[in-house]
């Protein structure tokens, strides 16, 4: 038996909204420690890694580890029915064929129960090594989201350069070229604050289309942490009370 009660159901709605355009069918791994998932987008350019810690749920029980194959598209449809103030219970019997979702209103005035049919999906779990990155940028998630969105008007590729003092977002397109440079600072204003942890200068190129999809998670966390090393995927980490959502994006290289 697996059962998890989340008092703040809105966070689950936001998580699923943040990944549904990247991954459509995923295996959730449920253990006594956490609910987790790892899935690549269809073109294998991006990877989503989600961990929700059991200790952060109001109630949590998982008698035996289980893999739950879920259609994210259909889960998103059902979660739309949950109110923003609703609590959400996730429940599955051992060797389950359905995932039961229960949405309860704040004053217990209304309860909705749905059984989502589970899928049997091939597991393609990748081993991602723990690694030190050359550069780590911590900044406002809404500011990063705004920069990516605005630069998308110029071209489809973002050139990201980080040194010990600043981070530069540069683009080059048919209409011209441009860049936005932000210096490391410890401003009281969260949208201006930028923390750099850089051992080596790094300069890499990434598809803005994917960064824009990742930035849907800016509603989950005020900050985003970008981890960069030459010639490996960039990691965008959004941390929140319940756990963390990480996106990996393979770089573009000059032909």
């Amino acid at each position: 038996m697996f059962e998890a009660l989340l008092g703040n159901g809105l966070i689950l709605k936001k998580i699923i909204e943040s990944i549904k355009e990247l991954v459509t069918e995923v295996n959730f791994e449920v253990t006594s420690e956490a609910i987790s998932l790892q899935a690549m987008d269809a073109s294998h350019v991006a990877l989503v890694v989600l961990v929700l810690r059991a200790s952060e749920f109001e109630e949590y029980r998982c008698d035996r580890p289980q893999t739950l194959g879920v259609s994210i598209t259909n889960l998103a449809k059902l979660l739309k029915i949950a109110g923003n103030d609703d609590s959400i219970i996730l429940r599955a019997e051992d060797e389950a064929h359905v995932l039961t979702l229960v949405f309860t209103g704040k004053n217990n005035e209304k309860m909705c129960e749905f059984n989502l049919n589970l899928l049997t999906l091939d597991s393609e779990h990748l081993g991602i090594p723990e690694q030190e990155y050359s550069a780590e940028v911590t900044m406002s998630s809404s500011e990063f989201s705004r920069i990516c969105r605005e630069l998308t008007q110029v071209t489809d590729t973002l050139n990201l350069s980080v040194d010990k003092e600043s981070v530069k977002f540069a683009v080059s397109g048919d209409i011209g070229t441009g860049s936005i440079t932000m210096k490391a600072n410890n401003s009281d204003k969260s949208e201006e604050k930028l923390i750099l942890n850089v051992s080596d200068t790094v300069s890499m190129a990434f598809a803005l289309r994917y960064l824009n999809l990742f930035n849907k998670a800016s509603s989950l966390s005020d900050e985003v942490v970008l981890s960069l090393s030459p010639e490996v995927p960039v990691v965008l980490k959004f941390a929140f009370d319940l756990g963390e959502l990480k996106y990996f994006l393979a770089p573009k290289i000059a032909e």
Binding site: H44, V45, L47, I128, T157, A250, K252, A254
Partner: peptide, 12 residues
Amino acid sequence: FAVQLIIIDFYD
């Protein structure tokens, strides 16, 4: 011209 790499080139 930039070529897009894929995730499984890095992790498996």
